[in-house]
C-alpha cells in the first residue's frame, strides 16, 4: 500500500528509531489503518482489540468493522471514539 511513512521517518526520526514494530494512521474518526504483525483478539461492533508486536490496542467506537485484514495490515472503519495502547 502506498503511504508516506518512510518520508515521515526520514524527516522526524533518528536512524535508530526508524525501525518501528508497527505503524498506525487515523483518517478523521472514521478509518484506522495499521501496519505491523496484527492479531485480532476481540471483535465486536463497539470494540475491536488487536495485538501488535509489543502491545495491545483497543479501538472503541460505534458500528466498527474490519474493512480489510491481512497478515500485516488492518483497516478498521466505523465511528471511532477512542484508541488505547497498553
Amino acid at each position: 500500500m502506498f503511504n508516506f511513512f518512510n518520508e515521515l521517518k526520514e524527516k522526524y526520526l533518528s536512524i535508530s528509531n526508524r525501525i518501528c514494530p508497527y505503524q498506525m494512521v487515523m483518517m478523521g474518526d472514521y478509518l484506522l489503518y495499521v501496519e505491523g504483525n496484527v492479531t485480532i483478539m476481540t471483535l465486536s461492533a463497539n470494540n475491536i482489540v488487536f495485538k501488535l508486536k509489543d502491545c495491545i490496542c483497543t479501538v472503541c467506537g460505534m458500528g466498527l468493522g474490519i474493512k480489510e485484514i491481512t497478515e500485516n495490515t488492518l483497516t478498521i472503519i466505523g465511528k471511532i471514539s477512542q484508541i488505547e495502547r497498553v
Binding site: L43, G65, I66, K67, E68, I69, T70, E71
Partner: peptide, 11 residues
C-alpha cells in the same frame, strides 16, 4: 488472515 485477504468483516 494467514491464507487470504479478508475484507468487509461485519458482525
Amino acid at each position: 488472515v494467514k491464507i487470504a485477504i479478508v475484507k468487509n468483516i461485519k458482525l
